[in-house]
Amino acid sequence: MTALTIKLATTAADHHIARMAALAMGLSMLEAAIPSPLPGVKPGLANIVTLIVLTRYGWRMAAWVSLLRVLAGSLLMGSFLTPGFFLSLSGALCSIAILAISQHLPARWFGPVTHSIFGAFAHIAGQLLLVYLWLIPHTGLAYLIPIFATAALLFGTVNGLIAAHYLNAPNTELEAPKLTG
């Protein structure tokens, strides 16, 4: 019997994305242990990593990290292809779509807190839309919007502050390879 080895050609940028996605996954595992009063209300700590990657290395890398985190995180949690996975995915897709726009805001006036709040609102908008279209097509869902929006603003601000604080701190520069391919 011969051992079959499949070797994928990977670049330094791929490794960097994988490292960042692993970090983000670690944070989502961590917060999965925190009990939540309402299903779906979570701090979204993994997005701190997305924000840092967005500011340091640009939108493309942030999108990779965010989507990889959702995919691999669901495999680890055993929730791949469950409704929860699709909710995460729709939230993440909406967030990165909004970040694609908000990243063009002038950096002089708008920092990670802005991106974080926009991303958080886009996240719940995407999730609630999917819940309405797919799971609970009931207008009573609108009663929950203020609760989810408040949670989004609160956690969005906190995550943005943490990311901004980290980005402001000295000696946190990671070596970032150029993204190719």
Partner: peptide, 29 residues
């Protein structure tokens, strides 16, 4: 408190968020 990283635009977005929440709460509840 790490207040330094908050820029003027961030405060504006924060205010906008609070206004949005107030508006949705008033209209939906």
């Amino acid at each position: 408190l790490p207040l330094a990283p908050i820029k003027i635009g961030d405060w504006m977005v924060l205010l906008l968020g609070v206004l949005c929440i107030t508006w949705t709460t008033v209209t939906l509840w």
